[in-house]
């Protein structure tokens, strides 16, 4: 019979992991239990992290916010600190799954699943999130972008868990934009998604911009050349169309059951044109 453990503290967790080296870890279960049902995996021991208080907090520090990996997506969405500093993340969370999925699923789970369609990943990439990984004896911190290696593949070491996600408060961006193109308005998986952070001057010159796309490759796609191209240019449809063409030239998406590569490529570029909509830009920064 399968066993299920629900540690409340790190020390309980470390002990369980020593006793059950092959145990599968989960928090919300919205991914792992689906995989178990599909018989893709068949772990005999499960460790559920939902009661692990040490990864369930949101903390504000001077220059960064720390989000516990076990914080549910719903709680993040309700959190005023997150909304204040990282609207782009909230926009992504709003588009994720369904209300029930957001109640159960966690931010750590979204990272560990490491799906190129993971909705929180494009915002976390451009917010330059760093991950804290802990094991009984070790603790390390590394950029998210260095952690995710491919679909379902991360740099986690045996015995480690993802404990916290750190996001720097600065630099501050007035423009926050996330959009997911899915096959319907809820319960959808990204066909393409885009996350953008940007600042413009009073003359509408782009002074800073960071961009990331989901579902365009094995991991989140960033295009420094496109960002470089945009810096210093006036934010208008002509600039964005030129950038869109650059995007289309650079990305190499695949075709799958949801959409063809051509569509993904085209929309990845086209979505840049949304940045011209004033509603996406806050006049006063956070």
């Amino acid at each position: 019979m399968k066993e299920v453990f629900r540690p409340r503290t790190f020390s309980e967790l470390w002990q369980l992991r020593r006793q059950h080296e092959n145990a599968a870890l989960y928090a919300g279960g919205t991914d792992l239990l689906v995989q178990m049902r599909a018989a893709k995996i068949n772990p005999q021991t499960l460790i559920c992290l939902e009661r692990l208080a040490e990864i369930g907090r949101i903390e504000e520090f001077n220059d960064e916010i720390a989000i516990g990996a076990g914080v549910s997506q719903h709680h993040l969405l309700e959190n005023p600190t997150i909304l204040k500093y990282f609207p782009v993340l909230c926009q992504a969370l709003q588009a994720l799954g369904s209300p029930h999925i957001r109640n159960m699923a966690t931010i750590g789970g979204n990272i560990m699943t490491a799906s190129p369609a993971g909705d929180t990943l494009p915002p976390l990439y451009i917010l330059q999130a760093e991950l804290e990984l802990r094991s009984q004896k070790t603790q390390r911190r590394l950029p998210l972008a260095d952690f995710i290696n491919g679909p379902g593949q991360t740099g986690i070491s045996p015995g480690e868990i993802l404990s916290r996600i750190f996001i720097p408060k600065e630099p501050v961006f007035a423009g926050h934009y996330f959009e997911k193109i899915g096959l319907r308005q809820a319960l959808s998986i990204a066909v393409v998604s885009i996350a953008a952070l940007y600042n413009i001057s009073t003359e509408r010159k782009i002074t800073a911009i960071r961009l990331a796309w989901g579902s365009l490759g094995p991991t989140i796609v960033t295009l420094p050349e496109v960002e470089t191209f945009l810096i210093g240019k006036t934010l208008n449809p002509a600039t964005l169309n030129a950038a869109a063409t650059l995007v289309e030239q650079q990305v190499k998406p695949i075709s799958d059951i949801r959409a063809g590569a051509d569509y993904r490529r085209r929309v990845a570029g086209q979505l840049l044109l949304r940045l011209d909509q004033p509603a996406n830009y806050r006049q006063t920064s956070a």
Binding site: V4, R6, G29, T30, L33, V34, H100, N103, M104
Partner: peptide
């Protein structure tokens, strides 16, 4: 909080 009973294990109801 609403949750989905197909993605919850019995032990989690404790």
């Amino acid at each position: 909080t609403t949750k989905l009973a197909c993605l919850l294990l019995a032990a989690q109801l404790e």
